[in-house]
């Protein structure tokens, strides 16, 4: 403890703070892209997979295959696939862009699965009633099915998102200077592991905690217990 206090002024130097700030921004941005874009794409995929909305079977198959494949490949492998994919396409993307794309694609598959499970938790007879009243698939989804699904969709999505924040550290494998990588570098520079990893632990917490608050807020707004 005493040594921590002793090395603190040196650790929290101007230079290191900028360094950690940038790493924090990368992690936050990757997480945001993953959760935001991933959820949006996942939502579209879940809708495409739904046979009460999409009548054209090949479209449903495509969405299903995408989801099943992307959920099964390890994150690191996906990262490499996107990395080499960009290279093959002659696309000169930054490592951050590669990492962000991977996070979004990966998150979309998992989100699609969470959302699908949520939609399917609503009794079939709700779709039947909507359909016989001539409500289109998307109208039924928006007015009838989704309001009853949020309570099922939100909790696993949030668990997943928090996990995703942590898994963004794999981006360090292709040289993206996010929090975990930054901590390792500082550690190698001679700072104690306790101060390096203790600091990013707090930073990770600062990132995840608002997400939890946001989730509770969403849950209260979209899925009041009244509608369950």
């Amino acid at each position: 403890m005493a040594s921590l206090i002793e090395e603190a002024p040196r650790f929290f130097s101007y230079y290191n703070l900028i360094f950690l700030g940038q790493a924090f921004a990368f992690t936050a941005l990757l997480s945001l892209v993953g959760c935001g874009l991933g959820f949006l794409i996942g939502f579209v995929l879940a809708v495409l997979r739904n046979d009460r909305i999409v009548g054209f079977a090949p479209l449903r198959w495509f969405a299903t295959i995408y989801v099943e494949i992307f959920r099964r490949i390890p994150f690191l492998v996906k990262l490499m696939v996107v990395f080499f994919g960009f290279q093959l396409a002659g696309f000169d993307a930054s490592m951050f862009a590669v990492a962000a794309t991977t996070v979004a694609l990966s998150a979309s598959a998992f989100s699609a699965e969470n959302i699908r499970a949520g939609l399917e938790s609503v009794h079939k007879n709700q779709w039947d009633a909507a359909e016989t009243m001539n409500m289109g698939g998307l109208t039924a989804l928006r007015r009838v099915i989704l309001p009853q699904s949020w309570a099922i969709i939100i909790p696993p999505s949030m668990t997943y998102s928090v996990g995703l924040v942590k898994s963004t550290s794999i981006a360090s494998q292709i040289g993206v200077l996010e929090l975990t990588y930054a901590a390792k570098i500082l550690n190698q520079k001679g700072f104690s592991a306790a101060i390096c990893f203790g600091t990013i632990l707090i930073l990770y917490f600062l990132l995840c905690y608002p997400m939890n608050l946001f989730a509770s807020h969403l849950e209260r707004r979209l899925a009041p217990s009244r509608h369950r």
Binding site: N125, Q126, D128, A129, E131, T132, M133, N134, R143, Q148
Partner: peptide, 19 residues
């Protein structure tokens, strides 16, 4: 769509929109 405009069904399990 046209035929559904002419029929209305009351289902055995009511199928009311729960929300």
């Amino acid at each position: 769509r046209k035929v559904r405009d002419r029929f209305a069904v009351v289902f055995q399990q009511y199928n009311l929109f729960q929300n």
